[in-house]
Design a binder for these strands. Structure first.
Lengths: 346, 346
DNA sequence: TTCCGTCACGAAAACGTTTTCGTGTTAAAA
DNA sequence: TTTTAACACGAAAACGTTTTCGTGACGGAA
């Protein structure tokens, strides 16, 4: 077992100073050709690679970015990570992940753990609990210490930083307009409670589309679900809620759901109740998920371009890092969503 | 913008030495109560936290583990990561990710990038290309330098290290036996080419089950797909292959597929060809996926307990790290798979 | 011969810690 | 009064780099 070789060891072996070795390896003009050759050959032989930690300490720069997300077993977030990793790698950065698990406390802990020198900057999507509590001190403190943050998807105005979001409002509006254009007269909305910013915006998009096209808003067509319930493990409850929606509104002919699971479950419940999709009821979801593509019928959906969001976020962060934060202005990049039409709409 | 405060700054401010500050903060008996109080109060006020990088350099221990996987937008792998992150966090470690994207070169690059001091050990699942090339030098070099590796799922005998695998053979055998018990007489296998170890083992499980129960093996019932084709983006091609399988074997009444996508697609194709699932054809997949649960009919499947695999892998790695690698023996932990019966089987 | 400039290299500081060892002061013991 | 021990603290090394600055040797110019 050969431990990694250091400059010091090379220096000793070759009977020169550490400085000489370092310079020789970096091809400094200060060092004679002879010595350079000798040192470089030796280094190659022993597969010398500079120690990253030492470099980080010296340069006060880790070339690592931290990404904190609520959940990783989630198509959207894993695609974002892929985007982040892609450009991070291209630009010589590593990616370290922290999962908040939708918990405020874990978000704070994770950030504190990483903020003490382990990384150069953060990419973050807020946990639901943080959104509820509206406690953003940990972000502001981090920013105050000179560590840049880029937020994506679940963002919040109270924090001054770069942001990457999808046009939730427009995306939802387009989706609902599509349903209207397809002659749906009674479009239901399945959404979350308002504290999740994206849910709120998508709800507003729905409202706006109705308003624009002169459909009146019927409160009984809106189902607001408690997003704290994990319907992924509690599917029955979700189905009951949706079934209730159908039963008290027999004329529903269109559904816009703010995420994939809601949309899919709505389709299934509709089918069970004897409705045909898309003939009787058309459905559009909001997501980057894998379910939409593979369900039968496949689900029309508003794609968020998650990977692109990750790429943009990483790009923004690294730009800021390499400009030495000199740019004190913050930008919000909006990624255009895209309506992907599949079998659940006409 | 207040930069993070260091020991040196505290020392200067309080007019004591750096050593004194360090000791005071660690509650050393060498320091008087008075001084301790003063220092600790000051540190708290300025929110002093030791710099991780400096600690890493000093202790030659980063408390970070690297996980290298072929793909992150994948239910199985993201669940593994969740498991890894869970126990890593519990035990005070961070997790840094590298994506090989199924490429040998990227796997090597990623490992080299991390092996130079950034992490204490690796958790890895091999890329397909690595499995094909059978070039494992980067693993052996890493291990030789004293950095422990734990492999999971896609492992290989040539590398001496701890491993965590699922009982692919048994899992497949059980699944096929379930089909046999449910009176399937013509069970087809949809699998990958043999270089992916897990595909090979599952295939063997299928063969073994047939043999045990006296069914003869019909080569035309086995569909070996080229796993290099990304059928996720090339669904049509996959459907065609499977359709071909059905058409040339009209008596198929059971299907065992080595992953979720194959199983799901088989169900869909079967449906299109007029077969009813599970009445005419029963289907079992192999996966930890989300598709199985939400498809209609929902898919019976062999669960791999991905998160548990991640937890075990992290546990093994950290154990080895904290025993100072003194334990020179390697173990292979086998996670029992579990047949989850849903609607696609009787 | 003297001076100066170039060449090739080494010493040392710095990044932020922890820890070992040394040392000056004070109080108690002889 | 002298010796000793406890106490409280500081200096310095170490982790592995990079970089600035200093310096001795040597050759050429004056």
């Amino acid at each position: 077992m050969k431990r990694k070789v250091t400059l010091k060891q090379i220096a000793k072996e070759l009977d020169v100073s550490i400085s000489t070795v370092s310079k020789a390896l970096r091809n400094s003009v200060e060092i004679s050709e002879d010595t350079k050759q000798k040192v470089q050959a030796f280094a190659k032989l022993y597969n010398y690679k500079p120690n990253n930690i030492a470099l980080s300490l010296k340069n006060r720069k880790t070339n690592t970015i931290g990404i904190i997300i609520p959940e990783i077993v989630h198509h959207f977030f894993s695609k974002v990570i892929r985007g982040v990793e892609l450009v991070a790698n291209q630009r010589g950065y590593n990616v370290i992940i922290g999962l908040s698990n939708e918990s405020f406390a874990k978000e704070v802990i994770n950030m504190e753990m990483l903020a003490n020198g382990s990384i150069d900057g953060f990419i973050i999507s807020l946990s639901k609990e943080t959104l509820q509590l509206q406690d953003y001190h940990h972000f502001n403190e981090t920013i105050n210490q000179g560590m840049p943050i880029v937020m994506f998807d679940r963002v919040v105005n109270e924090i001054q930083c770069d942001k990457v979001i999808v046009d939730d409002f427009e995306g939802a509006k387009n989706a609902v307009e599509k349903l209207i254009k397809n002659e749906c007269k009674h479009i239901a909305l399945i959404t979350t409670k308002d504290y999740v910013s994206v849910g709120r915006l998508r709800t507003q998009g729905y409202l706006e589309a109705l308003k624009t096209h002169g459909q009146d808003l019927k409160a009984e067509l809106i189902l607001k679900l408690d997003d704290n319930v994990d319907y992924e493990v509690n599917l029955d409850a979700l189905e009951k809620e949706i079934e209730q929606l159908f039963k008290s509104n027999s004329k529903i002919d269109g559904i816009f759901a703010v995420n994939e699971l809601y949309a899919l479950t709505a389709m299934r419940v509709a089918g069970r109740l004897g409705f045909r999709v898309p003939d009787d009821i058309q459905v559009i979801g909001f997501t980057d998920g894998v379910l939409s593509k593979h369900s039968t019928p496949s689900l029309s959906t508003v794609s968020q371009h998650a990977q692109l969001m990750g790429e943009k976020a990483a790009g923004l962060l690294i730009d800021k890092l390499e400009n030495d934060h000199e740019d004190e202005t913050y930008q919000t990049q909006i990624i255009a969503s895209e309506l992907i039409e599949r079998e659940s709409t006409k």
